[in-house]
Design a protein around this nucleic acid. Sequence first.
DNA 1: GAATCAAATGTAAGCGCTTACAATAGAGGC
DNA 2: GCCTCTATTGTAAGCGCTTACATTTGATTC
Lengths: 339, 339
Amino acid sequence: MSTTRTVPTLDDVARKAGVSTATVSRCLNSPERVVERTRSRVLRAVEELGYTPNFGARVMAAKRTFTIGAIIPTMENAIFARGLQAFQEELHARGYTLLVSSTSYKPEIEAEQVRALVARGADGLLLIGYARNPDIYDYLGQRAIPALLAWAFLPGAEPACIGFDNRRSMQALANKVISMGHRDIAVISGIVEGNDRAEDRRQGIIDALLENGLDPAKMRIIETPYGIENGAMAFDQLMEEETRPTVVMCGNDVLAAGAMRRARELGMSIPDDISITGFDDIELARILTPTLTTVHVPHREMGRRAAAELVRMVEQQSDGLSEQLESSLILRESLKDLN
Amino acid sequence: MSTTRTVPTLDDVARKAGVSTATVSRCLNSPERVVERTRSRVLRAVEELGYTPNFGARVMAAKRTFTIGAIIPTMENAIFARGLQAFQEELHARGYTLLVSSTSYKPEIEAEQVRALVARGADGLLLIGYARNPDIYDYLGQRAIPALLAWAFLPGAEPACIGFDNRRSMQALANKVISMGHRDIAVISGIVEGNDRAEDRRQGIIDALLENGLDPAKMRIIETPYGIENGAMAFDQLMEEETRPTVVMCGNDVLAAGAMRRARELGMSIPDDISITGFDDIELARILTPTLTTVHVPHREMGRRAAAELVRMVEQQSDGLSEQLESSLILRESLKDLN
DNA sequence: GAATCAAATGTAAGCGCTTACAATAGAGGC
DNA sequence: GCCTCTATTGTAAGCGCTTACATTTGATTC
């Protein structure tokens, strides 16, 4: 363990390998421009010295940080954790590093987070959903920092987005529910304010109702923050009503898990006494008893593609190409066919 | 909105305010060293020009990025997602930003990730557990980059660590299991190679066995990667044995969830036919049917404290102070008292 | 073997900021 | 009014890297 006092620089490597600093730099950044013999000599010197490029100097000279920022509501939500993990892996494979910030579902602090990440040198930004203050886009546009939206899909949206159509996906599930004979539908929705995903999912249910000649006004909707406990409390509220629904459609699997737990605590049997559906298809859905009917969303695929596209944008090989991914209905035990 | 073509620099501000660049810099970084009259003139110029300091230049000159890196196995594991979320929140509150990288449980690629984060200018690093190639510490030491270990606790360890004692925690659970009359204990462990947490938990069970005069050699141990499906398959293997255990102790809640699912699929009733325990106490544990007996670990608290300590280390207010957090037994339905 | 040309390498000019040190201004003492 | 001392501001030297441009090397052709 010969702990050298000073950190080696490009100059040290160049001297050791007997070449110029330019050649060392090229070995590291565009190795194909250096002949094999020289390159291996330089790389050996790099190895022996334990050289790592100085970040600041590199950024200053190259005007790039090879860093991409992501602002999500929270990593504690499995759908974001999963997508972000795939996003990070793909980024890493392409030589980029992930800078993470979170809003805790408070859209009003997103602008500050954007500035913070930009101030830390993010070359590009991943944002969730499309509902936000347009000033943010102005700010990014002025600084020519590419942004990409994920977890939502809106045709022709600007900036580009990679995701799925929350509204149609939920509509498809609701149609299925209705086709199974359910007429009294109650909804446990996530907070809609500043969250286009929650809003779209709710609208999808209404779309299905209208499509089937049912009256959305009669549908009971409870809006509650993310969390198992909140799902349970919302279920309680629904059960206080005069007429009980035959099915409770939840805005996500976690709320559904809470609702299921409370149903069980109230001595109700699922799906015989009441059906419950979720959205997202996180691992939980297959483990719950009974297993949960939900909408599968390709979170990992989304994260991976978002990373690939954002890197292309940062490297100016793309102006931002939107991409729609397919979600799919997953029918499991928690939804009963009344026919 | 007059989108200036070129981004203004310190020089532009200095010229506009009729002062030197040094004065502008001082206005921004140590305003008390500039007389009020001058300062307000400079700040006005900053405002009018919409000046934002250049990240790279600032980093190069100041040798600080206000960025902290974390390398975890994967964000898809809820325990890391939760701890990391708290870590990020605390970091943000202290003016730092989080850089994330992951190993996918492949300890051999950790060294590369460390270099990548250092190359991106991380001022400090959060690492999981203490088992790793010591070269990594040499490398960080040479660059004077503080590191802190989390999710494990080893008294007197270097670098400092913030976490809990996996071995004693599991030992406590195993003692409880034994005190409830269980003698045939089987274990579904995570991969031990390069993972001190998994190793320690396994050892904790052995400790308890010895403490109670039982023979560890008779205990069946299946080692499997993280994942519900793997937990299910491991359970299958255990059930193929001649003598069935009365309890299956799992290295974490996710493996336990897989085991429980398979038990149900095999028509076994938990805990009457077999007891199952987990470790971590993620949300899942309270939702499973039956609810899961496990060990609660204060992940959020750990993340928060790790962030606070790491910032202190980066700011040279601490040399790294280890801190042990308490875990606790959570007795739920999945463990049967045979007495 | 000279001429030509492409490939490989070297030279050196910044990139925009911080800060040690130098210069200047202003206040106070005599 | 002159000197001293301190508070304020200015000067300019890097920080370590990338890259445009210049130079050298070496293969190919005639």
